[in-house]
């Protein structure tokens, strides 16, 4: 059985629940309703209501410490690794509440991939990095793995640079290449949604540009939710933007509108650089 059909069977199962229909004909993949989160006593997310559309790039901006990373990590429940975390509210992924006790996080995380701020390839070869996901999900066939690796590296526009040294250690790549490798590794599990937490903040302008181009390319096949500190970046590549402040969503709008004609004065202050 090919990995694609494996994948579809998972999708079908989850699609069994009807997917909510949203504005301008786009379907929503993720939706959080009155989401609250506490780190022990710190109330880090306060009643977040957001909805993310399929095949769109949604940017999350806001000053340091406002809860962007926290929010994006609740979407794949990675935030639970922090001891003492408590959440209330609802996160609907394809119609199901992923905060339900019996929801399987492993299944969630194969459909919701994540790219971290600091490129974090494994200390393994380039090939093994990309093949890691498919392997843990049970794909052993060398040919199938080869195909996935090539396709994923191409998807991350890294293939041409590394095709002759797939067996080399991933640490030999440049920072930007490592980040694209992490994207390839994420594509290899064929997610529907890709979460990115400031994926370019540690990169030089040129590598940043490549990743931005890549994100726009990926948008055709994936829904992308991306935290960024860089407002130009948000303006360049996202369809919608959410502005976070002190654990709350101040404004969630079409990117064009949010940056040209924000409706909240705090948004205006932030994007014009008056704080943050």
């Amino acid at each position: 059985m090919s990995p694609q059909s494996d994948k579809q069977s998972i999708n079908v199962k989850i699609n069994g629940n009807s997917v909510s229909q949203k504005d301008n004909g786009k379907r929503s993949v993720f939706e959080t309703n009155d989401l609250n989160l506490w780190y022990s006593d710190t109330h880090a997310l306060k009643g977040i209501d957001l909805s993310f559309n399929e095949n769109e790039v949604t940017a999350i901006i806001g000053p340091s410490g406002c809860g962007k990373s926290t929010y994006i990590k609740t979407l794949n429940r990675m935030v639970e690794l922090v001891p003492g975390v408590r959440t209330t509210g609802e996160i609907k992924f394809k119609g199901k509440n992923i905060l339900d006790k019996d929801f399987q996080v492993e299944a969630l995380r194969t459909q919701v991939g994540m790219v971290f701020q600091k490129a974090n390839p494994f200390p393994k070869s380039i090939y093994d990095n990309v093949a890691y996901g498919p392997r843990i999900h049970g794909i052993r066939n060398k040919k199938v793995l080869d195909e996935i690796v090539e396709k994923s590296l191409q998807g991350a526009s890294l293939w041409d640079e590394v095709k002759d040294r797939l067996k080399d250690n991933a640490f030999g790549l440049s920072g930007g290449q490592q980040q694209r490798l992490c994207i390839a590794r994420c594509l290899a599990i064929e997610p529907d949604v890709i979460l990115m937490d400031e994926p370019t903040s540690a990169l030089d302008p040129k590598s940043t540009l490549r990743i931005e181009e890549l994100v726009q390319e990926l948008q055709k096949d994936y829904s992308i939710i991306m935290v960024t500190h860089n407002m130009q970046q948000a303006a360049r590549i996202s369809n919608k933007t959410a502005f976070f402040l002190n654990g709350e969503v101040v404004e969630f709008e079409e990117t064009d509108k949010l940056f040209t004609n924000p409706s909240d004065s705090r948004t205006e202050d932030y994007i014009s650089g008056r704080f943050g």
């Binding site: 990675m78 690794l81 194969t110 494994f122 200390p123 996901g133 590794r185």
Partner: peptide
Amino acid sequence: KEYKEASLAMGSTKWQTLFKVVVPA
């Protein structure tokens, strides 16, 4: 811990992460 996070975020279980990432590293 970044290795562990990367692995868990791809849907591997705690045990897979332990034996395929942490111990080899």
